Simulated scan of single mutants.
Amino acid sequence: MPVNLHSFAFLLLLSTTVSHLSAQHIDIDKEALSFLASEENIAITFTYNELLFNADDTPEEIYLKEAELKYKERQGAVEAANWLQNYTTSKNKMWPEMFLETLNEKVATYENGPVFNRTDSNARYTMNVNTTWMYFGYDASIIKGPSKVSMDLTFFETATPSNIIFKTTIRRAMGKNNSSDHPDGWAHFKRAGKAYVKAAYKLSQALKRVVD
């Protein structure tokens, strides 16, 4: 039976669109999160429990060992150590800061938007951002692939972390891949930061239904 190329192209586009929209959706419970509208500050923490990488879901420990070995073979032990150090710095500082900056900047435009703060231990409520999956993307001159990140968001009372108020997921937030954003240094870590920016923007859009 001959294939109708137009029909095939339409079905492929439809499948891609549905997949994209599914990845973009964030479940939000307005009633469960109603407390956000009455709080000035919300504590935020970042974790990477059971983090996986790439399409084959490589565990973080294995991924880091393979990356370290690759850099040792290609560029030497010093460069491998630098890569690991930059990875740790990105996890603990750069990615959380990029996420927070975008989230607070957008939520500040809402009528009852709280401020999310990593250092506010006195906040009544906390949101934990646990990154579960990452893909650094690639930049080979004219051919580029965007970074992606998935994360679980858990809201709970700061004094009783076991008392979970609400939990939701951001799936495959896709960062912009613009060479001007990372002209030097460890470009793939900076690309990953763009995925955190997109995740924060998506979250801020979802929270608009709660605090505006």
Score class of each variant (00 low, 15 high):
residue 6 H to Y: 12
residue 42 I to W: 00
residue 47 T to L: 03
residue 116 F to W: 03
residue 141 S to F: 13
residue 197 V to G: 06
residue 64 L to F: 01
residue 83 W to D: 03
residue 24 Q to E: 10
residue 123 A to W: 00
residue 208 K to T: 05
residue 162 S to L: 12
residue 181 D to T: 12
residue 172 R to L: 14
residue 180 S to L: 14
residue 128 N to Y: 00
residue 114 P to G: 04
residue 11 L to K: 14
residue 80 A to K: 08
residue 49 N to K: 14
residue 15 S to I: 09
residue 9 A to Y: 08
residue 122 N to H: 05
residue 131 T to H: 00
residue 63 Y to L: 02
residue 35 F to L: 12
residue 127 M to N: 00
residue 134 M to G: 01
residue 184 D to I: 10
residue 97 E to C: 01
residue 180 S to R: 13
residue 147 S to P: 14
residue 190 K to C: 02
residue 95 W to K: 02
residue 47 T to A: 11
residue 193 G to M: 09
residue 18 V to S: 07
residue 192 A to I: 09
residue 66 E to S: 09
residue 28 I to M: 09
residue 33 L to K: 05
residue 164 I to V: 15
residue 141 S to R: 08
residue 203 L to N: 06
residue 112 N to L: 04
residue 39 E to K: 10
residue 7 S to Q: 14
residue 193 G to Y: 04
residue 173 A to P: 10
residue 150 S to Q: 06
residue 135 Y to V: 00
residue 86 N to A: 11
residue 94 M to V: 11
residue 73 E to I: 04
residue 82 N to C: 08
residue 176 K to A: 15
residue 177 N to D: 15
residue 113 G to Y: 02
residue 125 Y to M: 02
residue 173 A to V: 05
residue 46 F to H: 07
residue 7 S to W: 07
residue 130 N to F: 00
residue 143 I to M: 11
residue 59 P to C: 03
residue 55 A to F: 07
residue 8 F to N: 10
residue 27 D to W: 07
residue 204 S to F: 03
residue 124 R to C: 01
residue 119 T to F: 05
residue 34 S to V: 04
residue 161 P to N: 12
residue 107 V to P: 00
residue 146 P to M: 03
residue 166 F to D: 13
residue 185 G to R: 12
residue 16 T to W: 10
residue 18 V to A: 10
residue 187 A to G: 10
residue 4 N to E: 05
residue 89 T to W: 09
residue 64 L to Y: 00
residue 66 E to V: 12
residue 33 L to G: 07
residue 3 V to K: 12
residue 185 G to W: 06
residue 77 A to E: 15
residue 21 L to C: 11
residue 50 E to Q: 11
residue 6 H to Q: 12
residue 191 R to I: 05
residue 177 N to I: 10
residue 73 E to K: 15
residue 124 R to V: 01
residue 17 T to G: 02
residue 203 L to Q: 07
residue 165 I to P: 11
residue 72 K to L: 05
residue 17 T to N: 03
residue 51 L to S: 04
residue 42 I to F: 01
residue 21 L to R: 08
residue 148 K to C: 09
residue 34 S to Y: 03
residue 149 V to F: 02
residue 180 S to G: 06
residue 173 A to W: 10
residue 23 A to V: 05
residue 163 N to P: 02
residue 58 T to E: 02
residue 49 N to S: 11
residue 73 E to W: 04
residue 205 Q to F: 05
residue 73 E to C: 05
